[in-house]
Computed example of a mutant assay.
Amino acid sequence: MKKSLIKTAFALAILASMSSCATVLGGRVTEYQRTKPVPGKPAREIRSAALIADVLLFWPGAIVDFVTGAIYRPQ
């Protein structure tokens, strides 16, 4: 019983460390965040705190954040 509890806690800790910060903590992703700006429009701003946390904690999480658009600030 105790070993399975330890294994479960270990698996949850690994899963939490491998998550992407902006996707998990950033809230709902808006349509503005999902769509790329058309040529001539200003670029979307990046959530710097989430990017720094992704790079320090688990850098592949930054890839997930960019793919989902969660790394960009909502309008």
Results as ranks from 00 to 15, higher is better:
1 M>Q: 10
2 K>M: 09
3 K>H: 13
3 K>Q: 09
3 K>Y: 11
5 L>W: 12
5 L>Y: 15
5 L>A: 09
8 T>W: 15
9 A>S: 14
9 A>I: 12
10 F>K: 03
10 F>R: 10
11 A>N: 03
11 A>R: 05
11 A>E: 05
12 L>F: 14
14 I>G: 08
14 I>E: 09
15 L>Y: 15
16 A>K: 07
18 M>L: 15
20 S>H: 01
22 A>N: 03
22 A>H: 00
23 T>R: 06
23 T>Q: 14
24 V>Y: 06
25 L>P: 00
25 L>K: 13
26 G>P: 00
26 G>M: 02
27 G>E: 07
27 G>F: 05
27 G>Q: 03
27 G>P: 04
32 Y>K: 02
32 Y>G: 05
32 Y>L: 03
33 Q>W: 05
34 R>T: 05
34 R>H: 06
34 R>M: 14
35 T>Y: 10
35 T>W: 07
35 T>A: 08
36 K>P: 06
37 P>K: 13
39 P>Y: 07
39 P>H: 03
40 G>S: 04
40 G>C: 04
40 G>I: 02
41 K>R: 09
41 K>Q: 15
41 K>N: 08
41 K>W: 06
41 K>C: 04
42 P>D: 01
42 P>G: 02
42 P>E: 03
42 P>T: 07
43 A>G: 11
43 A>T: 05
45 E>I: 07
46 I>Y: 13
46 I>N: 05
47 R>Q: 03
47 R>E: 02
49 A>T: 08
49 A>H: 11
50 A>E: 00
51 L>G: 15
51 L>Q: 13
51 L>C: 12
52 I>V: 14
53 A>F: 06
53 A>C: 11
54 D>A: 07
54 D>W: 02
56 L>S: 13
57 L>I: 11
58 F>S: 10
59 W>I: 07
59 W>L: 13
60 P>S: 09
60 P>Y: 03
60 P>G: 06
61 G>E: 01
62 A>Y: 10
63 I>R: 05
64 V>W: 15
64 V>K: 07
65 D>I: 00
67 V>D: 04
68 T>K: 04
68 T>V: 05
70 A>D: 00
73 R>E: 14
74 P>G: 02
75 Q>F: 08
75 Q>G: 09
